[in-house]
């Protein structure tokens, strides 16, 4: 009786779960890029369009200060959005130890609902997963070493089969570890994106307030100019812009 041929070790099949997680990070970063582009467009509008709209209507220092203050508010709002969305795009490191941080409470709760789907059948913590990986790699290495020294054909067949099983086990644990790291990374990016969305909403109110301020800067009530009449020998004609009910030079 012959044992079936063992699958030869080669490049492992690509993991669809890992690909999915990486694609979700790509999607989230694309969203952040759109937010940054929109904020930059608003910033360009504020800096370029604002002065063109109101500069000719600014009459006094108060108008200038109000308009400048409004533009500054709007620019601060734009910078705030760009800063926060930049956090989503910045590269970051992820380790299994990050699972213990308060930022990943949501991910820990998700894992706790079905730990075997994240840690596999034998581990239940990141440390357990590390330990399991070391164990499986050690077992695979020792089986290969035993196989290399084995002369008995029957035991060699058994060891060949067991070595292939050990390699598959080691690959499985390694894949679970990579997936967990990808989950940690994706959760960090997700959290950054949520924070950026919240801050974008708040910053847009700031931009709106600033825009309203500089657009309405020239609209404040101006004091009426004081007109001085110089009455000579002949009654002087009133200025064209002044409509009088009575001639001020008549006594």
């Amino acid at each position: 009786m012959s044992t079936p041929a063992e699958p030869q070790p080669g490049a492992p099949d690509p993991d669809p779960v890992l690909a999915d997680l990486r694609a979700s990070v790509t999607d989230m970063r694309a969203t952040a890029r759109w937010m940054t582009a929109a904020a930059a467009a608003v910033g360009a509008l504020v800096l370029a369009g604002g002065p063109l709209v109101v500069v000719k209507d600014l009459d006094d220092a108060g108008d200038v200060v109000t308009a400048a203050g409004g533009m500054l508010l709007a620019v601060v709002g734009v910078v705030w959005v760009v800063w926060r969305t930049g956090d989503v795009l910045a590269p970051r490191t992820a380790t299994l130890d990050d699972l213990g941080s308060p930022e990943l409470d949501g991910l820990r709760a998700l894992i706790d609902r079905s730990p075997a789907d994240f840690y596999g059948p034998t581990a239940s913590t990141p440390a357990g997963l590390r330990r399991e990986r070391r164990l499986r790699l050690t077992v695979a290495a020792r089986l290969e070493a035993l196989l290399a020294r084995e002369d008995d054909p029957a035991r060699a067949r058994i060891l060949t089969h067991e070595a292939a099983v050990a390699r598959r086990n080691a690959l499985l644990i390694q894949r679970l570890q990579h997936r967990l790291l990808a989950w940690v990374h994706a959760w960090h990016v997700r959290r950054s994106l949520r924070r950026a969305r919240r801050d974008t909403l708040l910053a847009s109110l700031l931009v709106l307030a600033g825009a309203v301020l500089y657009v309405t800067a020239p609209l404040d009530a101006k004091a009426e100019p004081t007109v001085v009449y110089v009455c000579g020998a002949a009654p002087a004609a009133p200025p064209k812009a002044v409509h009088l009910k009575e001639d001020p030079c008549v006594r």
């Binding site: 779960v17 999915d20 979700s24 079905s114 994240f118 067991e162 099983v165 989950w183 994706a186």
Partner: peptide
């Protein structure tokens, strides 16, 4: 016993 680990994990789909 040295056995093959089951490869039946189904984590949530994030995307």
């Amino acid at each position: 016993p040295h056995e093959e680990l089951p490869d039946d994990q189904t984590p949530p789909d994030m995307r």
